[in-house]
Amino acid sequence: MEVRTIKVFTTVDNINLHTQVVDMSMTYGQQFGPTYLDGADVTKIKPHNSHEGKTFYVLPNDDTLRVEAFEYYHTTDPSFLGRYMSALNHTKKWKYPQVNGLTSIKWADNNCYLATALLTLQQIELKFNPPALQDAYYRARAGEAANFCALILAYCNKTVGELGDVRETMSYLFQHANLDSCKRVLNVVCKTCGQQQTTLKGVEAVMYMGTLSYEQFKKGVQIPCTCGKQATKYLVQQESPFVMMSAPPAQYELKHGTFTCASEYTGNYQCGHYKHITSKETLYCIDGALLTKSSEYKGPITDVFYKENSYTTTIK
């Protein structure tokens, strides 16, 4: 009895394709271990004539594949690729409408935090270190965002349907971005203890939790000093293409032309909904596939993004 075979390709990165001759009487799992086709788990399936010449994702289970996976995804987590594939199996079914010149995501599976993050990423200057993220990001900007969303979920250790947080998501993504040249110098002034300067680099240099107003941050924000008295913390120097200011959701007025974009969060910790506000020729609110415009805006804002380049204080 002759062994019926077909020729397929296996890959971990969709760049390096490895030619395989597979036995049609055995499952993919018996031949390769966990195997995925377009995100779908085909591990328990036997090869079919229609699979001839198709590319299958496999887990990096030998040295060659491990090197290829690390170079593309910059992670050695053995569960990463499987999590990416199972997320992709959902995100490829989502709709990605162009809204006001940006790629958004039609609401499904509690994905409003991903839509808000995706919209924000198209408006701030950011370059990702893992080629996987950078490639998928370019495709997302062009309207094909399924891979990018699935990668975000995998890097953030999230599953489809789980509630997510924009600030946490951005923080994970910033860790995989090139923020080497970003720098922030802060000064804390206390009447009792004097003053202390701190220099922050990388992710810490672009994120701040405690106030939404970048102007206020430049002037000074009140913080408790270690001595128990009130101290003032203010920005001395900022070198970065953008800054992200966050605070627990509270009524906040966004003035046209003073910011790049913002995240609105309605609801409580267990259950809520994100919308995205962007400042173009007027203010726009993007909620999944829905767009509304207004000249002014007041609502429960939790993150505001500002364009920056270089700032030095005039406070002496």
Score class of each variant (00 low, 15 high):
Gly288Asp: 00
Ile277Lys: 03
Gly267Asn: 07
Tyr297Cys: 00
Lys307Val: 09
Thr116Pro: 03
Met245Cys: 08
Tyr214Asp: 04
Glu52Trp: 09
Pro300Lys: 06
Thr27Gly: 04
Thr19Lys: 13
Val304Glu: 11
Cys182Pro: 07
Cys182Lys: 05
Leu151Pro: 03
Gly299Leu: 01
Val166Asn: 03
Tyr36Leu: 04
Val221Gly: 00
Ala177Ser: 08
Glu2Ile: 11
Pro224Leu: 14
Val206Arg: 02
Lys7Pro: 13
Val243Ile: 06
Ala250Pro: 00
Pro249Gln: 02
Ser294Gln: 14
Asp109Asn: 14
Ala250Ile: 10
His18Gly: 01
His276Leu: 02
Leu212His: 06
Thr192His: 01
Gln20Val: 12
Val189Asp: 13
Ile277Gln: 15
Val42Lys: 07
Gln122Ala: 04
Asn178Ser: 10
His273Glu: 01
Ser25His: 13
Gly202Arg: 05
Thr169Ser: 00
Leu126Asn: 02
Gln197Arg: 12
Arg83Gly: 01
Phe242Arg: 05
Gln197Ile: 13
Asn89Ala: 12
Tyr284Gly: 00
Thr103His: 08
Ala87Gly: 12
Gln251Phe: 13
Glu239Asp: 10
His48Thr: 09
Met85Gly: 08
Tyr274Val: 01
Leu59Cys: 14
Gly53Thr: 09
Leu81Glu: 05
Val243Ala: 02
Leu200Cys: 10
Ala231Cys: 01
Gln251Trp: 10
Cys112Gly: 07
Lys255Val: 14
Val188Trp: 02
Lys255Gly: 03
Met209Leu: 09
Glu162Lys: 02
Ala150Lys: 02
Pro300Leu: 11
Gln31Glu: 05
Thr75Trp: 07
Thr232Asp: 02
Gly272Trp: 08
Pro300Gln: 14
Ala140Cys: 10
Tyr214Met: 07
Ser310Lys: 06
Ile6Phe: 10
Gly39Ile: 07
Val160Lys: 09
Val8Arg: 05
Cys149Asp: 02
Asp38Gly: 11
Val221Ser: 05
Val206Gln: 00
Gly101Tyr: 03
Ser86Pro: 07
Glu296Met: 13
Ala132Trp: 03
Tyr36Cys: 02
Gln20Leu: 08
Glu253Val: 15
Ala140Arg: 08
Asn100Phe: 00
Leu290Val: 13
Pro130Tyr: 06
Val12Leu: 07
Ser104Leu: 06
His18Ala: 08
Phe217Gly: 01
Leu65Trp: 06
Gly53Val: 08
Pro130Val: 09
His18Met: 08
His74Gly: 15
Tyr284Thr: 08
Gly202Phe: 03
Asn178Glu: 07
Asp13Ile: 08
Pro47Ser: 06
Lys201Tyr: 14
Asn110His: 07
His18Glu: 02
Thr75Phe: 11
Gly267Ser: 02
Thr211Arg: 04
Ala205His: 07
Tyr138Asn: 15
His48Met: 13
Gly210Cys: 09
His256Arg: 11
Lys93Ile: 15
Cys149Ala: 08
Lys54Tyr: 14
Trp94Ile: 08
Ser25Ile: 11
Gly210Arg: 09
Gly288Ala: 06
Pro131His: 06
Thr192Lys: 11
Ala140Ile: 12
Thr5Glu: 14
Leu17Gly: 03
Glu239Val: 13
Met244Gly: 02
Tyr311Thr: 05
Val3Thr: 14
Ile223Phe: 13
Asp109Glu: 11
Thr192Trp: 04
Asn14Gln: 14
Arg184Gln: 03
Thr64Cys: 15
Lys298Asp: 02
Thr159Trp: 06
Gln238Lys: 00
Ala142Met: 13
Phe9Cys: 09
Phe32His: 07
Lys54Ile: 13
Ala136Pro: 02
Gly257Asn: 06
Ser171Lys: 14
Phe70Trp: 12
Asp41Ile: 10
Lys233Thr: 13
Leu173His: 06
Asn157Arg: 09
Lys293Phe: 04
Lys275Asp: 00
Ser86Arg: 11
Phe70Asn: 02
Gln196Ser: 14
Thr10Asp: 11
Leu121His: 04
Asp23Thr: 13
Thr116Lys: 08
Gln196Gly: 06
Leu291Tyr: 15
Met85Phe: 00
Gly194Ala: 10
Thr55Trp: 07
His276Tyr: 07
Val99Cys: 09
Leu81Gln: 04
Met244Asp: 00
Leu37Ile: 10
Lys293Ala: 11
Leu59Asp: 15
Ser50Ile: 11
Lys127Ala: 12
Leu163Thr: 07
Ser294Arg: 12
Leu133His: 03
Phe128Asp: 03
Arg4Met: 11
Gln98Trp: 06
Phe80Val: 01
Met245Val: 09
Lys293Leu: 04
Asn61Ile: 12
Ser171Ile: 10
